[in-house]
């Protein structure tokens, strides 16, 4: 839905982050403080973390890759759920449901919507990318249907007890494992291709002015749909999923020497 309060639909005029940067730039120039100018451009030697008013807007590619990071962490959770299903163990339904709902809301409605609205149309007419874009669109659709299936099954009995008794619950566990595996197998290369081919192609094919406008739009839409500090709150939800699945400690992924 696109008509929430405080949205970019609001008739009142918004001061964009780029406008704030522009204004801050004027302050810097007026005061002749070159160190602050360095903070604006991300250069200089001060570290630049003490001026909270000066925040660079992520480029469209950076924003989309950050969202891919969220998806990667959910893929890890999906793989852990699949392993539990294969082992006949309990699957924490809350973790799976929240992970799948994040995929539906943040990845499939929002992130993929950005790609379908602002990225793919800019590349589809280029014969070098037309077939790839079509494949990515088909995969978005397949992912949405897999997610619908995962959400439907995840609401049922995923206990280890269900794995022992022939019947609908055991069949559901088997079907769920297949859906999770298919989702992970499809999205790992999917996001890798987007990161290494599609986003660089967008950058090459788009003027700096439009890239800046896209960056603003992506940030606006994220705030409109998920509120302020959207990424932090989304990552917090992902962390909650990881906590339930025993994946919260990054150290556990480090191999022993």
């Amino acid at each position: 839905m696109n008509d929430s309060a405080g949205s970019i639909n609001s008739p009142r005029r918004r001061v964009s982050r780029r406008t704030m940067l522009f204004g801050a730039g004027g302050l810097v120039i007026g005061a002749g403080v070159t160190e602050s100018a360095n903070l604006l451009t991300g250069s200089g030697s001060s570290g630049g973390s003490d001026d909270s008013a000066v925040v660079a807007v992520p480029s469209p590619g950076e924003e989309l890759m950050t969202e891919h990071g969220v998806l990667k962490r959910i893929l890890l959770a999906y793989r852990a759920c699949s392993d539990r299903l294969a082992a006949g163990a309990d699957v924490p339904a809350g973790a799976l449901l929240d992970g799948a709902q994040l995929v539906a809301d943040y990845v499939e409605s929002f992130h993929e919507g950005l790609e379908e609205a602002y990225v793919f149309p800019r590349l589809r007419a280029d014969s070098r990318y037309a077939a790839l874009i079509e494949t990515l669109l088909v995969q978005h659709d397949r992912g949405r249907h897999l997610t619908a299936g995962i959400l439907a099954v995840a609401a049922g009995d995923l206990s280890a007890r269900a794995a022992d008794v022939p019947g609908p619950a055991r069949s559901a566990r088997t079907a769920l494992k297949t859906q999770l595996d298919q989702f992970v197998r499809m999205y790992e290369p999917h996001e890798a291709w987007e990161d290494t081919v599609v986003y660089p192609a967008l950058r090459a094919a788009t003027s700096g002015r439009v890239l800046n406008e896209l960056a603003e739009r992506f940030a606006d839409e994220e705030n409109r749909q998920f509120g302020d500090a959207a990424l932090a709150r989304i990552v917090q939800r992902v962390a909650g999923v990881e906590q339930q699945l025993g994946l919260a400690d990054l150290n556990t992924f480090t191999p022993n020497p």
Binding site: G113, E116, A117, E221
Partner: peptide, 10 residues
Amino acid sequence: VSCTGSCAGT
């Protein structure tokens, strides 16, 4: 028309 922005891409 409630589908605007990224929604209109999908």
